[in-house]
Write a protein that binds this DNA or RNA. Structure first.
Length: 190
DNA sequence: CATGGGATTGACT
DNA sequence: GTCAATCCCATGC
């Protein structure tokens, strides 16, 4: 999608990205899980202000923000809101739709539900790495495309974000209800 | 320049 | 359920 899609409140974009398609290097999957992050809350990398790492986060919307997690995994985000605001949507899980065998090779696993059911898994499956940080999501190499017709009316559930220690109460995680490719079930306990 | 902490995953008890 | 792997980056001396 074009930058205008991302130049809106990050929580809205996180919900609207469910059902859209991420594509890179002959592989593609439908987004079934996202989380919103905003520089006003301490779980967001941009909370510390403008640094070399957060430069892309504070830049124009519609770019990829890719960072290394736990020294091992790469995680993919879509930068949102106008330039000057540090906000992004973390892509947490996909349902694979193209390039399944290449994904299996990169992951070393066979089952479809093991290929992209987590933020570190999907970047490995699609071959997304830190070199993709800052790339234009409407031009590539990493591309996000609008929802296929079959995903037009997907039911979306909101819940608390996963794996963070700060601002844990915000209901900024969004899941496609019923998907078998989520990193964790959609409904968190109470 | 040294240090500590992750927006995680997979293997193991 | 627990825990190590591993590197980037922000912070503090």
């Amino acid at each position: 999608m074009k930058p205008a899609f991302y130049a809106r409140p990050v929580v809205e974009v996180a919900r609207d990205l469910i059902g859209c398609v991420v594509a890179h290097d002959e592989c593609a999957g439908v987004i079934v899980e996202t989380e919103a992050y905003h520089d006003s809350e301490p779980a967001c990398h941009a909370y510390v202000g403008l640094t070399e790492r957060t430069r892309v986060l504070f830049g124009p919307p519609g770019r990829a923000y890719v960072y290394r997690s736990y020294g091992i995994h790469a995680c993919l985000n879509a930068v949102c809101e106008p330039a000057g605001v540090g906000a992004a949507v973390l892509i947490r899980a996909l349902e694979p739709v193209q390039g399944l065998d290449l994904m299996r090779m990169r992951r070393g696993l066979e089952r479809v539900q093991d290929l992209c059911s987590g933020p570190g898994k999907l970047t490995q499956a699609l071959g997304i790495e830190l070199v993709d940080d800052g790339c234009d999501l409407s031009r590539g190499p990493v591309v996000i495309e609008r929802r296929p017709h079959a995903w037009r009316d997907t039911n979306v559930a909101a819940s608390k974000r996963i794996g963070i220690t700060k601002a844990t109460e915000l209901p900024w995680r969004f899941c496609a209800v019923g998907s078998r490719c989520l990193s964790r079930p959609a409904l968190s306990r109470a």
